[in-house]
Nucleic acid binder design. Structure first.
Length: 598
DNA sequence: AATTGTTGCACC
DNA sequence: AAACGGTGCAACAATT
């Protein structure tokens, strides 16, 4: 056993580094006297799904406020056994972004996450309930480093961050590669590794008390942890990739991009993705560019380009689109598949300021093009299954109607009337503009935004929003109440007891936060219900107001009906309906089928 | 060489 | 009176 000491705000921390199998008895002794421990793992990378390839668990660390144990799992089965024993024996565990460590333990140590999740605290969840803002938004942030800096000690935060950078330098490698290369006996590495569970343990103590009373009273801590578990199960399941289809699309797009690039060269453009070069080229062609970006450069976006009647503009649009689609959708999926052609989304169940979930990594499903199934076709339901999508109807507008108690809006939804047409008729505009006005109000937009989006003149935009306010006076009253609350306290509370900070001078955003966050919580609770009812294995992805499933072909209609019924939610007496759409095997087929129906 | 900021674009 | 909310990713450009 080796001892490494660290000073945290003047207090000594002892990090015990287990070296031999004999050392494990002291570790076991310590664990048996411990009820709650911080937990963390160090691995060769982040791709826990590649455990049958090169992914390995290297270290496992346990810690309390002043002490930590570092176990070199990589050294042999005896060490892995000790870690398994400790994880199963401890009453409670706390980890930062526990989902990752649960995946690692599941994949590398064979303890299903279902067994550990009920006794795991996640400091990231608590931190979000206390303050969801990133450092960029002048909040405490959500990473262990940022939280350490904000709540514990700036020096320690800097050292923790700096240590892996320094190690990479020492090993003459990069920060991405250091994890697999570093010697597990390295003292700096062990100090870094040992401090993580200590910090998680301390953060739990600090953050728990800071979670707003209303959040606690309404059980948010509990159900956010259960939700994180449900989304982690979806991550573990992964999504089956149609490799052949994805490769074909990728090749097609590469060809389109090459063609466009080659033709652009004739107009003297070497790099079609460089906006300064494009600006020069267009100037040389006699095109006058006026639109500026927020930072004052010449804008070269879709709007500008479609306004230029020159072949070069079309080529830029084509090449850009082909590049983005190929890289962001298809190649990212192809590169991240495991040995069984499954791909893992990273589902952050509690991400945005409003608590909205985000999906990152190889399946950025929230941003897939929605006007056709082209991209979504690459994702397949299981063998013998079909894809199914269940989405809530008009979730945010219904939520707004329910909580504003606006009689006209509530009545429209209750009687199945066309809300967009009602707004349009009141303003004397067409349905499209009425619809835009409805959504814009949810977002807190004004007439300028309507001018931008609908392409109507200022007069019409003002008139439309005026008509909206006159038609749905309850909405304005809710907005006023919420922005007033924000102005007075800096926060609003959502109906689930979540406290959301509102930035100074952007009080108008309060209404959108209320609606967006409340709607997210409806989806969140739907996921919990689905999981409790046994739908876990069939769920693939949550996408704001939609859940994607893989259902056995024969039972699909019945299961879809049952799942939709479970998801439907009543807020303040108003139903938010859920509608199921069943396709063929690929996710894209659901979209194509829905298209052809309408 | 790696990180950070900016722009553009995909979505609800 | 007016105020467009929330994301993620890739490329380029500038900085460290």
């Amino acid at each position: 056993m080796r001892q490494i000491s660290y000073r945290l705000r003047g207090q000594p921390i002892i990090i015990h580094v287990v070296e031999t199998e004999d050392d494990l008895s002291e570790f076991r002794e310590w664990i048996s006297h411990t009820e709650l421990a911080g937990f963390d793992t160090e691995t060769t990378g982040l791709d826990w799904w590649n455990v049958d390839r090169e992914f390995r668990l290297r270290l496992a660390q346990f810690g309390t406020a002043h002490e930590a144990y570092v176990i070199p799992v990589e050294k042999g089965p005896a060490f892995a056994d000790a870690v398994r024993w400790a994880l199963l024996g401890l009453d409670l565990l706390v980890a930062h972004h526990a989902t990752y460590d649960l995946h690692v333990v599941d994949a590398c140590l064979g303890i299903p996450m279902e067994d550990l999740a009920p006794k795991v605290w996640d400091t990231r969840i608590l931190a979000h309930l206390v303050d969801p803002r990133s450092v960029l938004e002048r909040g405490p942030g959500l990473s262990l480093e940022d939280l350490t800096r904000h709540y514990i000690c700036e020096t320690t935060a800097d050292e923790v961050k700096g240590s892996m950078r320094a190690l990479a330098l020492k090993y003459k490698t990069t920060k991405a590669r250091i994890w697999r290369l570093v010697d597990i006996r390295d003292e700096d590495f062990n100090r870094y590794a040992g401090m993580d569970p200590v910090l998680a343990y301390r953060l739990l103590r600090i953050l728990y008390r800071l979670v707003p009373a209303l959040s606690r009273a309404q059980g948010l801590i509990g159900w956010e942890h259960r939700l994180a578990h449900v989304t982690a199960l979806m991550e573990r399941t992964g999504y089956l990739l149609d490799v052949e289809y994805a490769e074909r699309c990728s090749a097609d797009l590469a060809q389109q991009e090459e063609d466009a690039k080659a033709r652009a060269k004739r107009y003297g453009v070497q790099n079609i993705n460089s906006n300064p070069q494009l600006a020069d080229a267009f100037k040389a062609l006699g095109v006058r560019l006026t639109k500026k970006t927020p930072k004052g450069q010449l804008a070269m976006d879709d709007e500008v380009l479609t306004g230029i009647s020159h072949p070069l503009a079309d080529l830029v649009i084509k090449a850009r689109k082909a590049l983005k689609w190929r890289k962001t959708w298809f190649e990212s999926a192809l590169q991240s598949r495991d040995s069984q052609d499954r791909v893992r989304a990273s589902i952050n169940s509690l991400q945005a300021r409003t608590a909205r979930m985000s999906i990152t990594g190889a399946v950025p499903a929230q941003t897939y093009p929605s006007d056709s199934g082209y991209v979504r076709h690459m994702w397949l339901a299981e063998e013998g299954h079909v894809s199914c999508s269940i989405d809530f109807g008009n979730m945010e507008l219904r939520y707004l109607a329910a909580f504003s108690r606006d009689r006209t809006m509530l009545g429209a939804f209750r009687d199945g009337l066309d809300l967009h047409q009602i707004t349009a008729d009141a303003a004397g505009v067409n349905r499209k503009v009425g619809k835009m006005a409805n959504f814009l109000t949810v977002y807190g937009g004004g007439w300028r935004a309507l001018v931008q989006q609908a392409g109507v003149d200022e007069q019409t935009a003002r008139k439309t929003l005026h008509a909206f306010n006159a038609t749905y006076p309850g909405v304005g009253a809710l907005a006023k109440r919420l922005s007033g609350e924000a102005r007075k306290t800096g926060y609003i509370y959502t109906s689930t007891g979540r406290r959301l900070p509102v930035d100074k001078g952007r009080w108008y955003a309060a209404q959108n936060y209320f609606v967006q966050s409340g709607s997210r919580d409806v989806t969140a609770r739907a996921l919990l219900r689905l999981h409790r009812a046994g739908f876990g294995p069939y769920m693939r992805l949550p996408i704001h107001d939609e859940v994607v499933f893989s259902f056995p072909g024969r039972e699909a209609p019945e299961m879809a009906r049952e799942a939709a019924r479970l998801m439907e939610f009543e807020v303040q007496g108003l139903l938010i309906p859920a509608d199921a759409e069943i396709g063929e095997r690929s996710w894209g087929s659901v979209l194509d089928r829905a298209d052809s129906k309408h």
